[in-house]
Design a binder for these strands. Structure first.
Lengths: 227, 227
DNA sequence: GGCAACTAGATTGTTAACAATCTTGGTTAC
DNA sequence: GTAACCAAGATTGTTAACAATCTAGTTGCC
């Protein structure tokens, strides 16, 4: 799970269509492919040693995932995401993850309670040590855990889609001064309310947390425009 | 919008990939293709006069939409939807359409207010006349209108996906005794709260409405198992 | 010098043939 | 009679060649 920190140049060997999809998606999410960058079929063919048909199918799938843009006879590009869209995506995540939190509160088991609280401790450690990388990672693990505990497949699939699109903004938000501390407090509240079994409160805290991410996004944008 | 009541046998002429997607999707939503039914590529080729490549791309897209199931070397089938899944889909719709209702309340214009209230009147007329077909149609138009007024693209795309999957259950719910009357009352409340500009109440009423659909679904299932 | 038309190269879209896999029906051995 | 096996047909997966479209650079004309 925590692999693929290496450069892109080491796993080109014969890929199938799923392989190409994964590779390009990861490349986009990791920032190796920049927004707007062209993705010529021929390049992907030689890069991943896949047939052109496979590359073509992969691009179609990435388009339907919303992270690649295709124009007839003009090829595929990495789809740029505007701030407005990032806000929309986060708003959508807020309500869907709110649903997950509510369901998780109703369905959580004893083992899952233990694991979730352990993640809370990890979060505290990361923030105390000012370890932004660890914070970002555990952050995602908390959201993932709540989603898994909720056992809501439909919501899970929707979140997969939304997360893929918004990841490029995530690590940026974590760099705002004071943001990790605020995010940690909110996550602890989410964890506690889910563990307590109070569905309404779990939904509220999760939504509040993500709406505060929306605020952070807009603040980030204001800062950018200031310069 | 309200077309395609005819049989499937009249528009086969040379279709592109989007044409095949639309045709098969409509066919599934209209019930012409039954859940679990096989969709051999050769059949679709001759039916819609499309190339096999186009059919193949179309099937891939339909799979990513979640309404078609494909197994390697075993072809495509119409994906069956269980009651549990229909409940999940409706729960997801509840929170996402709740978001739309809240945004719509904030962004609605005078013209849109007029149009939305007109839909409410149509709904009353349909229920008074016990016109189930009209009720179902206007019902969908109300949801569509709220979605459009919200101007929330991300939520709109998500709802497109969810609606495609759940439509097969919809008209069934409308047939429950007393259901149209209950649904109408709820819709009127949604319309009024959106028009009033109260975002919180708009979200509440929309969610309440769809949660009552969840109840209706489960009641429907109980009735089926009783026989 | 600037603009329009044209040509060559690059890139994507489409089709058809071939290869691999699965299903089905029958046959045979026990 | 049953179960394992085999072969033919049907169905899907893959590849390669061909066609259509776009882009950029060049040439010629005004």
């Amino acid at each position: 799970m925590a692999a693929s920190y290496e450069t892109a140049s080491d796993e080109p060997s014969t890929a199938t269509v799923d392989g190409v999809v994964t590779a390009v998606r990861d490349g986009i999410m990791a920032g190796r492919y920049a927004p707007g960058q062209r993705l010529p079929e021929a390049d992907l063919v030689s890069l991943y040693q896949a047939s052109r048909g496979a590359v073509r199918t992969a691009l179609a799938q990435l388009e339907s995932e919303g992270i690649v843009l295709r124009e007839r006879n003009r090829g595929a590009r990495v789809r740029p995401i505007s701030l407005d869209e990032a806000v929309e995506i986060t708003e959508a995540r807020a309500v869907v993850e709110g649903l997950c939190a509510a369901k998780a509160a109703q369905r959580i088991t004893t083992d899952e309670r233990t694991r979730l609280r352990a993640l809370g401790d990890e979060l505290r450690t990361a923030v105390d040590g000012s370890d932004v990388m660890a914070y970002t990672r555990v952050n995602q693990e908390v959201h993932r855990a709540v989603r898994d505990i909720s056992r809501h497949e439909t919501a899970g699939i929707m979140l997969d889609r939304l997360r893929t699109q918004s990841v490029r903004y995530h690590y940026t938000v974590a760099l705002l001064p004071g943001r990790p501390a605020v995010g940690m407090r909110e996550h602890i509240e989410v964890i506690e309310s889910v563990c307590s079994g109070d569905a309404d409160r779990a939904e509220q805290t999760m939504r509040a947390h993500l709406m505060s991410v929306v605020d952070a996004l807009q603040q980030l944008d204001a800062n950018l425009h200031q310069w």
